[in-house]
Write a protein that binds this DNA or RNA. Structure first.
Lengths: 166, 166
DNA sequence: CTGTATCCTTAAAGATACTG
DNA sequence: CAGTATCTTTAAGGATACAG
C-alpha cells in the first residue's frame, strides 16, 4: 500500500482497523496464523513474499497486539483471534463470487464434523459461532498444487491453530 | 497498494477476495456505499481522496460486480451487499481494539430499535443476521466533527442504503 | 533460522489542470 | 457534476547480500 497508510481524516473505526490489517499481505499472514503457521520461515515460504516485507508486517501486527511473539514464534492474541469472522467471511465471499472450482480449504466443526456456514456458525449445532480452536482444516475441491512444506501440511486434515510441523 | 496487486501464487479464495477489495480505499468506498453514498462527488468529498484513485477504484468495483453503475450512481450489487458482514465485522473489530471513545456510527435494527451485535445479528430478535436494508444509522458517542455534506448527512439518523441527499 | 541492510524498480498516491 | 490527463513524489515491493 503506497503512500500514507494512515487514512488521515477518516475518523472511523473501519479506517483504524484498516491501518492495522489493511495493508498488502497482512490478512494473508493472519490467515496463516489461524492455520497454525508460527515461524518466520514458514510464513516466508508459504506466502512467497519478500522477507523484509514479512518482517515489517509481523512487527506492526505485534505492535498492535494482533500477534504476540513467544520466542521465535508468532501466535495470535485475543485481538487476533477475534479477527476470525472477518478473515473467514472474506474468504467465503471470495469463494462465492470468484471461486469457480470450489474452496481450497474446508472448515469443519470438530465436534460434529459438519462444514461451517459462511457466517462462521455451525448449521447442525445451532446458530452459535464456532471458535477457530474448534475447527478442523480439510483440503477442498481445488486444493492447491504447491509443494512447499506448509502447503503440504495444510493438505493434511488437522486442527486449526496448532503449530504446523514442517 | 504498490506493485502487483495480484497475489500471484496465492491460490486461495481469500487472496482472490483481496485482489478485489484489498486495495487502499476500496473498503471505505464500499462502506460509504452501504451508508447510502452513490455519487462520485460525494465519495470524493467524504473520503477526501484523489479523484483519479476514486475513479480507478470505482471502475474495478464495477468490473468485479461489487457495484453497478446506474446512470451516474454507483449502487451495491448482490455481491456487494453480501460484503456487509466483512465491513461491519472489521469496523467492530477496530472499535473494540482501537476505539477509545466508542464508535462513530451505531447500527440499529430498524424493526426493534436495538443495536446489532458485532457479528451482525440482533440480540433481541434471535440470532438471525440482520440485512443492511433493515438497519438504521445513528450517530455514535464519538461522531465526527467533519463538516462536509455527507458527514453532516450521516449525523442524521437515517435508513441504510438509501441515497444521501447532499 | 531469524532477521537487517542495501539497492533498484515500479507503480500507487497525490496534486493540479483540463474536458465532456 | 463526472470524470480523464499529466506530472511529481514517495514508499512499497522485490532481489540479494550480510549478520546475530
Amino acid at each position: 500500500m503506497a503512500l500514507g497508510k494512515d487514512y488521515t481524516g477518516q475518523d472511523c473505526t473501519l479506517a483504524r482497523a484498516l491501518e492495522v490489517v489493511g495493508e498488502r499481505w497482512t490478512l494473508l499472514i493472519v490467515r496463516d496464523a489461524f492455520y497454525g503457521v508460527r515461524r518466520f520461515s514458514d510464513f516466508l515460504v508459504h506466502l512467497d513474499m519478500p522477507r523484509a516485507v514479512l518482517s515489517a508486517r509481523l512487527s506492526t501486527l505485534v505492535e498492535h497486539g494482533v500477534l504476540a511473539k513467544e520466542g521465535h514464534e508468532y501466535v495470535l492474541t485475543e485481538a487476533g483471534l477475534s479477527l476470525w469472522p472477518v478473515v473467514h467471511g472474506l474468504a467465503c465471499w471470495g469463494e462465492q463470487n470468484f471461486g469457480e472450482l470450489g474452496p481450497h480449504r474446508l472448515f469443519v466443526h470438530a465436534d460434529c464434523g459438519t462444514r461451517i456456514a459462511p457466517d462462521g456458525t455451525c448449521p447442525t449445532c445451532g446458530g452459535a459461532p464456532v471458535r477457530p480452536a474448534d475447527l478442523e482444516i480439510h483440503p477442498g475441491p481445488s486444493a492447491g498444487l504447491r509443494d512447499d512444506a506448509v502447503s503440504k501440511a495444510l493438505r493434511t486434515p488437522h486442527r486449526m491453530l496448532t503449530p504446523i510441523e514442517t
